[in-house]
């Protein structure tokens, strides 16, 4: 039974495999495809970021942010770490964006809110400088420590990642967990309101 299916599948795939071989001979390597994908994700991230910054509507800005997160997830996929890419989507799109969205929705729903007005010129310049600050820190590092050849990334198995997090890197992992726990407890404490005593009807 299984052998029959395998022969049929092999027969179906044989012309495609032949095409694949002839194409791989004519093309030098896969780096062009990777480069094209990198350019595409760059465009996605830039377009998303510009939408997030320039749009006058908070919800549209939110959509730009989601687009940026999708593009960054694409970068992670190109770096052969699908685990990080899926976690990026799961946490940033599925949780962070949705919660921010929720906050926008629960607060003032007005078309002429504060975000409709352009900030003053000094604010724009200060914001621009603040945005450049991480670039000023990161650019010298990248230029100084850039690898002089392209490495094809090797995917790491998720089980290996987990083993590393719980053996050699267990202290930072647990510290981050404690920070998150403290943040959560703090958030609950901030919104905690003692219930007023119920009067019997």
């Amino acid at each position: 039974m299984n052998q029959i299916i395998e022969t049929i599948l092999g027969f179906l795939k044989s012309p495609l495999n032949a095409l694949d071989e002839s194409l791989s001979q004519s093309l030098p390597d896969q780096s062009y495809a990777a480069l094209a994908a990198f350019a595409f994700y760059c465009l996605v991230v830039l377009a998303g970021g510009l939408t997030a910054v320039l749009s006058r509507n908070l919800v549209r800005a939110m959509m730009g942010l989601i687009l940026t997160f999708l593009g960054v997830a694409g970068f992670y996929l190109l770096l052969a770490c699908p685990f990080l890419a899926f976690m990026q989507l799961l946490i940033y799109v599925g949780a962070v964006c949705v919660l921010v969205f929720f906050a926008v929705m629960l607060t003032k729903n007005s078309a002429v809110g504060q975000e409709q007005n352009l900030p003053s010129l000094s604010h724009i310049i200060l914001g621009f400088l603040a945005g450049l600050a991480p670039l000023a820190i990161l650019t010298p590092m990248i230029i100084k420590h850039a690898p002089n050849y392209q490495i094809t990334p090797e995917p790491t198995k998720t089980s290996l990642l987990g083993r590393g997090l719980l053996s050699s890197d267990v202290v930072p992992f647990e510290l981050i967990s404690i920070i998150l726990l403290v943040a959560m407890a703090g958030a609950v404490f901030l919104v905690w309101r003692k219930k007023p005593d119920k009067k019997p009807n």
Partner: peptide, 12 residues
């Protein structure tokens, strides 16, 4: 993880 990650877009 792929399923859970992209299912988050449904909420959006």
């Amino acid at each position: 993880l792929l399923i859970l990650a992209f299912a988050g877009l449904g909420v959006v």
